[in-house]
Design a protein around this nucleic acid. Structure first.
Length: 491
DNA sequence: TATGCCGGGAA
DNA sequence: TTCCCGGCATA
């Protein structure tokens, strides 16, 4: 997209250059004549006539062949002297045997097929004025036939490296008319000068040298590019507005995408960020190549209250193994490592019966306390606990043969979800048995690792919202109330 | 559109 | 730590 944008912007660059630089001198002397022609620098106000061929030349060298209007017709001449101060050129007209003094703008460096109309001798300006900006192709110098290519090269050049407007190599004999073709071709009609100006800028600087000075570059070229950059910055900044976290040292994940550096506190977040912003994946496509984002983030540690998007180098990246840190020990304080598989000691005391107790109707029947048959038990808020533990069914043969039981006897690794511990009641089991499909054994059906980190797929299990309805929100589990992952009806 | 829930802020 | 919510992903 960028190229297109730049191309698009590049094109009116000339206009920018023309209009934004009233100082003709700043635009080389070639601009001055143009200015004069447009009536700004000259007393004569009138539509621009055919641009003198010298327009884009800084300097005429003694001995250089030029053409001037003399006696109403164009006469070839030889430059004797070019007075830069007065911008006058002393020209010898061999055909007439005369020496004439002409303003630079009245000097052509190549013959015109259509001789310019009689010039006003006093000002040296052509009497014939044309309101049309289009420069007749007949005014094109032979060299200018390559103008299209040169302009293309110019665009490419500017695209390839810098905002500098690179002047294509050009000899002094290559002049104006081509510019008219390229720039004055009608779009830039009104202040006809603009087209010429821009082109004069681009085409007129003699090759190979007088490179555009930085000042010029800034004053001329940057406007367009600046806008471009600003656009880019705007996009980036909008996208990465720093946010604060209060945690003291913690693990975060930094986007390694060029010029991004976005830091998120969770793998899921960073993956989603990469996916959506950089990989541009959504929906089905996202699922197909979900693991791709793994290569674009790395694990970092952040100190307290640091913006999540410090400038590059400010964050304290921990020399992680590689850019693809897929399974850090802990994604965030609230997330457990999916890779942690440890048989947990059943914690009967950590159960939070409040949840189940809150459901006298369905859950009061809960008889989870079969000795030895203990599920992972934790406070319902454990979704925020750092170290969730997966409970393995104790050896004590629980008579309850629950699908949940079997599924949880092994490590329950769910997509993007920590090992949530939960208290299970008969009511829940009933619900799960009757409303939710039997969970297959995780080990056999667990998705590829790359899929785990993403937002977990919505399960079939009912959630508090569905079970109790919004009107009984008070009966929801805390997580549901907080719009967190449901702790009561786990997938 | 409804739902689930992540990420983050406020108290 | 608890509570809440904006906003995104998904069904």
């Amino acid at each position: 997209m960028l190229p297109k944008t730049r191309l698009g912007k590049r094109s009116p660059l000339g206009a920018l250059m023309c209009t934004s630089s009233p100082n003709a001198e700043g635009l080389l002397e070639t601009g001055a004549p143009r200015d004069a022609q447009g009536g700004v620098g000259n007393s004569a106000m009138g539509p621009p006539g055919p641009p003198p061929l010298s327009r884009f030349n800084n300097k005429l060298h003694p001995g250089q062949k030029v053409y001037v209007v003399c006696g109403g017709r164009e006469c070839p001449g030889v430059v004797e002297q070019h007075n830069h101060v007065d911008n006058e050129v002393a020209i010898l007209l061999p055909t007439l045997g005369q020496h004439v003094l002409r303003k630079l703008e009245d000097v052509w460096t190549s013959p015109n097929v259509l001789p310019p109309p009689a010039a006003i001798q006093g000002t040296g300006r052509p009497a014939q004025v044309s309101s049309c900006i289009d420069v007749p192709r007949s005014y094109r110098s032979p060299d200018s036939v390559d103008m299209d290519e040169m302009m293309a090269a110019l665009v490419l050049t500017s695209l390839s490296h810098s905002p500098l407007v690179q002047s294509p190599p050009k000899t002094d004999t290559v002049t104006v008319c081509s510019a008219g073709v390229e720039c004055g071709g009608g779009e830039l009609s009104d202040s006809g000068s603009s087209g010429y100006w821009s082109c004069g800028r681009g085409c007129g600087s003699p090759a190979p040298s007088p490179p555009i000075t930085e000042t010029e570059v800034h004053s001329l070229a940057t406007p367009s590019d600046e806008g471009l950059d600003m656009e880019m910055e705007q996009v980036l900044f909008d996208e990465h507005a720093p946010r604060k976290r209060r945690n003291s040292l913690k693990v975060s994940y930094r986007c390694l995408w060029p010029n991004c550096g976005k830091i998120l506190t969770s793998v899921v977040g960073i993956k989603r960020h990469i996916r959506t912003l950089h990989l541009g994946q959504t929906g089905e496509h996202e699922r197909c190549s979900r693991s791709e984002e793994d290569f674009y983030y790395t694990e970092v540690q952040q100190r307290q209250a640091q913006p999540l998007t410090p400038p590059p180098g400010v964050s304290i990246p921990i020399p992680t193994t590689s850019s693809s840190t897929r399974w850090p020990a802990c994604a965030s304080p609230t997330r457990a490592s999916p890779s942690r598989v440890e048989p947990a000691v059943p914690e009967a005391d950590s159960d939070s019966p409040t949840e189940t107790g809150a459901q006298p109707g369905q859950l009061s029947k809960s008889a989870p306390s079969i000795p030895g048959f203990i599920w992972q038990v934790h406070s319902e808020h454990s979704y925020q606990a750092p170290a969730p533990v997966q409970v393995v069914a104790p050896p004590t043969s629980g008579s309850t043969s629950d699908s949940w039981n079997t599924s949880s006897t092994s490590t329950q690794i769910r997509q993007g979800a920590p090992f949530r511990v939960r208290s299970v009641s008969v009511g829940e089991q009933w619900l799960q048995q009757h409303s939710a499909p039997i969970r297959p054994h995780p080990s056999s059906t667990s998705p590829p690792r790359s899929l785990w980190t993403s937002r977990r797929i919505r399960g079939e299990a009912k959630k508090c919202r569905k079970v109790y309805g919004i009107e009984h929100r008070d009966q929801w589990c805390t997580a549901c109330r907080w719009k967190k992952a449901c702790q009561r009806f786990l997938d």
